[in-house]
Write a protein that binds this DNA or RNA. Structure first.
Lengths: 158, 158
DNA sequence: GTCGATTATCTCGATCGTCGAGATAATAGC
DNA sequence: GCTATTATCTCGACGATCGAGATAATCGAC
């Protein structure tokens, strides 16, 4: 019988779900603090991520990132622009395109909130050995693979 | 210099964020498959979790679980009841209260989708030793602690 | 037991986010 | 040039959520 081991694995799956809920709550809290909704936060994070990679997101690409139709993206960017979080910048190369640039203030607020979390997570991992972190890393990659297949609706490999 | 170790920790934090995104996508997929929105899915999960604990959720408690005001809960339960996923059951003890019972079909669909994920996750952990899983478990608890503090807006312990 | 306070849910009207359809404007291909 | 394609925007409609207030049941003090 290995039902003990199976129970341990199920418990870990439950812990993962709980972590997921709390991680979502971090985004929700940022939204509450800044008078935004969850979509707005996801958009700002997408723009920030792109900026970190050195790319300036266009309206269309932002829509793909947050899975919204063009009409909704226009409304979304209107909201973010109205409160000064982003600026529309027409691309001189292709004047149909609208680039999105985050304001310094929004960048700072985002870095403080989410960067602070990343810093605290990193700090909480300081007590772990390189070997332990390698295990965690492999586990994260394995779990993400399984989850990704589920989110795409692909059959489980059994 | 331990910037290598710091970089490894940051990378793990990024992996965790990616996992979170995919885990959200699993719920989104369930919603798409059944013509529901994310709130409806969260509600069904909350009802299912309560049922597993042997409790029948009332409308009010469901509202707390998914963070909605009573007016929205009424609309939410109306939606779920209309498509036959839940049934309103007046509590004979306290006839103000409305208990919520999931239909067999909804229960089965939920168990299939989310239970299937749990099963696959568990299977993917079979290759891990008890020691490795203990590391993962401790790590999950530590990270959840940090994240929960952030989601509650409590100061980081530095 | 009766009556006011409290609790649980519901109704109504308003607001806001999202979308489909179609307009507008710029680019690309021939 | 002229047409097809691409990127974004406008407009009208729909649906999820909410605040305020209504309704109905329970509780507590007397």
């Amino acid at each position: 019988m290995q039902s003990d081991a199976a129970a341990a694995r199920q418990e870990i799956a439950l812990l993962l779900r709980r972590l997921n809920v709390e991680l979502d709550a971090v985004g929700q809290r940022f939204a509450d603090l800044h008078g935004l909704n969850r979509t707005d936060v996801r958009a700002l994070v997408a723009i920030m991520d792109a900026a970190r990679r050195g790319e300036a997101l266009t309206a269309g690409r932002l829509g793909e990132a947050v899975d919204l139709r063009s009409a909704s993206v226009t409304a979304l960017v209107d909201r973010l622009e109205k409160v000064g979080h982003v600026r529309r910048v027409r691309d001189p190369e292709d004047r149909r395109r609208v680039g999105l640039e985050m304001s310094e203030a929004a960048m700072t607020a985002g870095a403080q909130h989410f960067g602070g979390l990343a810093r605290d997570l990193s700090a909480a991992m300081e007590g772990y050995s390189a070997e332990d972190l390698a295990v965690v890393r492999r586990w994260l990659e394995d779990m993400t693979g399984v989850i990704t297949r589920h989110s795409r609706g692909e059959p489980s490999a059994d």
